[in-house]
């Protein structure tokens, strides 16, 4: 489904991603771990289409389509979803209104008619329940005054509403208490199907007890230096990143 080949990206002339290779198939969950500053958020931003980065080399395709050619909105419409590490607050823009616009623009892109108001409301209700998001939050301005945990839950709520093909969760677990973590993980698992795929970025193997990955990758200084089964996360947690540093001889 997703195929990243030799991806290099830089910002302000500084190379952050230095040759990433990653293949994700439908139905899979991939975890990406790595120390602070290794380029995890950069990779997700590049996949989502943030224009600040310059792609100097490599390719990214989603189901054969050149992703790098597309605008951020067209990537979203093709099924890419990024749950942001730091979701922005947008005072004055209601969560629900903006999601309605999003859904209808995605539908228009696919040549579908706008969703009926009552169907939309039913969908909101259903997905709110799925991620146990307080109804009041759904109706408020996007993330305005939300706690850290509420913001993360709102990201998953949006993901549930948009039903992406490829979801990238950038440290969605950070700052979540264990109950919230379980709810978010349960939401992700419920949304999982044989037709979609998920990339979870995390520092902690705890999340991976709930969202069980098929593959774990370790990103280090802009490169995937090691990939392995879910046990790799455990090893990483035990030994810290030093063993990676030793292994790659950095």
């Amino acid at each position: 489904m997703l195929s990243i080949k030799n991806l290099h990206a830089s910002i302000d002339g500084k190379e952050i991603l230095r040759g990433i290779n990653l293949e994700v198939k439908t139905g899979e969950i991939h975890a990406i771990m790595g120390p602070n500053g290794s380029g995890k958020s950069t990779l997700s931003a590049v996949l989502a289409g943030k224009e600040d980065y310059e792609i100097t080399e490599g390719s990214v395709t989603l189901n054969g389509k050149d992703l790098l050619e597309l605008s951020p909105e067209d990537r979203a419409r093709e099924g890419v979803f990024l749950a942001f590490q730091y979701p922005v607050e947008i005072p004055g823009v209601s969560n629900i209104n903006f999601l309605k616009t999003a859904i209808n623009e995605i539908r228009a892109y696919k040549g579908q008619t706008p969703m009926e108001a009552k169907d939309f409301l039913a969908l909101v209700k259903e997905k709110q329940k799925l991620v146990e998001l307080d109804g009041k939050l759904a109706n408020r301005s996007v993330n305005e005054g939300f706690s850290g945990g509420e913001k993360k839950r709102n990201e998953i709520f949006q993901m549930a509403m948009l039903e992406p093909k490829l979801a990238i969760l950038d440290e969605t677990d950070s700052g979540l208490d264990i109950d919230a973590l379980k709810i978010v993980a349960a939401g992700v698992n419920k949304l999982k199907s044989k037709d979609n795929a998920t990339i979870v970025i995390t520092h902690y193997q705890r999340l991976l007890d709930y969202i069980v990955p098929d593959v774990v990758h370790i990103l280090y200084k802009g490169k995937i230096v090691k990939s392995g089964p879910k046990e790799l996360a455990l090893e990483l947690e035990e030994k810290g990143y030093d063993f990676i540093k030793e292994e790659v001889g950095a």
């Binding site: 989502a48 289409g49 943030k50 224009e51 605008s71 951020p72 909105e73 990537r75 979203a76 419409r77 979803f81 990024l82 942001f84 979701p87 922005v88 947008i90 823009v93 209104n97 903006f98 999601l99 616009t101 999003a102 859904i103 623009e105 995605i106 892109y109 996007v142 949006q158 948009l162």
Partner: peptide, 16 residues
């Protein structure tokens, strides 16, 4: 960018 990453066109995002 946040709004566009959810599928809104640049114009709709700005309008909102």
């Amino acid at each position: 960018f946040y709004l566009r990453a959810r599928g809104l066109s640049e114009a709709s995002a700005k309008k909102l």
